[in-house]
Design a protein around this nucleic acid. Structure first.
Length: 268
DNA sequence: AGAACCCCCTGTTTGC
DNA sequence: TGCAAACAGGGGGTTC
């Protein structure tokens, strides 16, 4: 489920239920979910920690604790849930944190791609991430210069978290359509004016996604409404909302890529 | 440097 | 209908 707007929605939604709670015990049900430290050290260090802050960086969900930080990356199929009362673990639960006030935080993840870190310094995990697209650092000028410094197709470049952090397959396709740029456009051929349009399109798309509480697709994530406003994502063969032409799909970097052949022309 | 391919996993959808 | 292949919101790795 998780791109920036979905993780942001989770942080906003779970914050009031988590702030001030103390972690009484942990139950790691799939060892490889834990990226660091060792399962033994994790169990020992997390017990007794109080949750002081709930936030997000890129697609990472962050729990600031008394003396360490818990980072959770949901990857393709992860989800987080706070439950009240006696809880019977379910099939896809990978980590369960028992909290005060008879509550638990459940990390569920059918595909097991999700990862959890318990670290002293989150900055080390985040070291290679590009800027936050909703921060002030993400200006048209920065984007234009950064695009020119590379020679890559826009689609894979915008998915690259070291270039820009937080976009995933949905929001890249939606942003490129809004910006009227073909996904295969070489980054160093984007004009300053197009870069400004792309910057604005990315921000508008993410802000709308957050406003809609993210996108709900398949069985993984529910509650968001952004899926009802997709312009191109998952709409192969359907009409472009701008010009009516049929949306096309191609594969770029192993990822399904959706675009309008009329609105997003590839010039040469 | 960048593109193309592999892998990690499970569940659902699609095509024959 | 049944079964196999394709596909899925992510990201790390190798090879050319």
């Amino acid at each position: 489920m998780p791109e920036l707007p979905e993780v942001e929605t989770l942080a906003r939604t779970l914050r009031p239920a988590l702030i001030g709670k103390t972690i009484l015990a942990s139950d790691l049900r799939w060892k490889r979910t834990l990226a660091a430290p060792s399962p033994e050290a994790f169990k020992r260090k997390i017990r007794g920690q109080e949750i002081t802050e709930v936030s997000r960086r890129a697609k990472y969900f962050i729990l600031r604790l008394s003396s360490v930080s818990l980072l959770i990356h949901l990857r393709m199929s992860g989800g987080l849930l706070v439950v009240l009362g006696g809880y019977q673990p379910e099939k896809h639960d990978r980590l369960i944190l028992k909290l005060t006030d008879d509550t638990s935080l459940i990390f569920s993840d059918p595909r097991k791609f999700g990862r959890v870190w318990l670290v002293d310094d989150p900055a080390r995990v985040f070291a290679d991430l590009g800027p936050e697209p909703l921060s002030e650092a993400f200006t048209a000028g920065w984007l234009f210069a950064a695009l020119r410094a590379r020679r890559r197709q826009l689609k894979p470049l915008l998915l690259d978290q070291t270039f820009l952090a937080g976009l995933g397959n949905i929001y890249v396709d939606e942003s490129l359509h809004r910006a009227k740029l073909h996904p295969l456009t070489p980054s160093d051929r984007v004009t300053a004016r197009q870069a400004e349009g792309l910057r604005n399109a990315i921000r508008a798309t993410l802000e709308e996604g957050i406003r809609q509480n993210g996108a709900s697709i398949d069985w993984v994530y529910r509650g968001g409404g952004f899926q009802n406003q997709f312009r191109v994502y998952g709409r192969t063969g359907q009409a472009c909302p701008v010009c009516g032409r049929k949306i096309q799909r191609l594969t770029v970097g192993q990822r399904g890529t959706h675009f309008c052949p009329k609105c997003q022309k590839l010039k040469d």
